[in-house]
Simulated assay, not measured.
Amino acid sequence: MYLKTLHLRSFRNYQDQRVDFSAPKTILVGNNAQGKSNLLEAVELLATLKSHRVGRDRDLVLEGASAGQITATLERKYGVADLALTVRTQGRRTVALNQENLKRQLDFLGVLNAVEFSSLDLDLVRGAPERRRSWVDSLLIQIEPIYAHILQQYNQVLKQRNALLKEIKSEHSLSKSQDAQLTLWDVQLATTGSRVTRRRARVLKRLAPLAHNWHASISGKTEILEIKYAPNVSLEDDDPEKVQQAFLDKIQQRRLPEQIHGTSLVGSHRDEVEFTINQTPARAYGSQGQQRTLVLALKLAELKLIEEVVGEPPLLLLDDVLAELDPLRQNQLLDAIQDRFQTLITTTHLGSFDADWLKSSQILSVQGGNIK
């Protein structure tokens, strides 16, 4: 797939900016806080409908405007797709595909695929379990868009169930009607949670060997990376009924502590993804260099997996990461990309790139929300 044009209107610090991409690699160069990352964020939003930087749409809209818009033209094997996303300071966002407004945002997902790698991704190793769950979920949404709906269902059930548990805790008792309601929510949590857990397990099973091979290559086979999925409800196999029953069994075991704490202690919202290097937890013992190598291996594995599933190479968005990598890892990354993936790279200077890379790249200067 190839992103041909991107047009930003009242988005972040861009008033009205169109970019035409004319090479497989585009380098966005400029000082910090000029808008380089904002452009990559716009592409990420078209791919996942999420930003890894903010959670509210109002933060994406240019100050003083009531709405911001991202439009793009994407070339894929099956033809050209026109994408449009409008975000508002108040009210719901809207999406359009080929000039047709879509009722379901789900139908917008999976048209553009992209993998983003930024300095914030070190949190994948060092951060809380929520960060790793979010990473797996974002990958799943791109290769299996229906997962966005499944995850939304689970989160809605979890919210309702937690509200009931909070009510039970505040009253220090469990009425008959509350007991009946809780039983219904238990079934709902088990049903939706088992769908989330099974899909996370499947995608990590496919991703792990790819990441393992990349990691071995980057580290010169001196380090062995293992990725282990540690779901809150353990999986014996992928059978939907058995997984659902395992959920229900564990919920029954934890029913009293949940009522005491007033929150759900069982479910997919408590899953963990564990990374080990040479059988040592990367989070606790990995050096910063090792952690960067791990994240780089994960991102290259994501690229490969998306390409395998969708049948086309996704876009690669590199947000000021070359400066974070030593020369060896830089070369590994640049060699892996070559011309296979359309790549958008932000940087404050061009010193990290060799002459051949610069020669085959489109170089754009970004200054105060203007691109030249």
Rank of each mutant, 00 (worst) to 15 (best):
K4F: 07
H7I: 05
R9K: 15
R9S: 12
D20N: 14
V43Y: 05
L46G: 01
K50Y: 11
H52W: 04
D57G: 03
K77Y: 08
G79T: 05
A81E: 12
L85W: 03
R88C: 11
V95W: 05
A96Y: 06
N98K: 09
F117D: 01
S119T: 14
D123A: 14
R126F: 03
G127V: 02
P129R: 10
R133D: 01
D137L: 09
L139Q: 03
H149M: 12
I150C: 01
Q153L: 12
Q160K: 13
L164V: 04
K166R: 15
I168A: 08
S173R: 15
S173E: 10
Q181Y: 09
L182W: 04
L182R: 06
L184D: 07
D186N: 15
V196P: 00
T197V: 09
N213R: 15
W214Q: 13
A216I: 09
S217L: 14
S217W: 10
K228D: 13
E241G: 02
K242V: 05
Q245K: 14
K250S: 09
E258I: 10
I260V: 15
S264P: 00
L265Y: 04
G267R: 12
S268P: 00
D271S: 06
I277A: 03
Q279H: 14
G289A: 08
Q291K: 12
R292I: 08
V295F: 06
K304D: 14
E308P: 00
E308A: 13
E312K: 05
P314H: 05
L315H: 06
L318F: 11
L325E: 01
R329D: 01
Q338D: 12
R340H: 11
T343F: 11
I345C: 05
H349V: 07
L350Q: 06
I371D: 03
K372L: 13
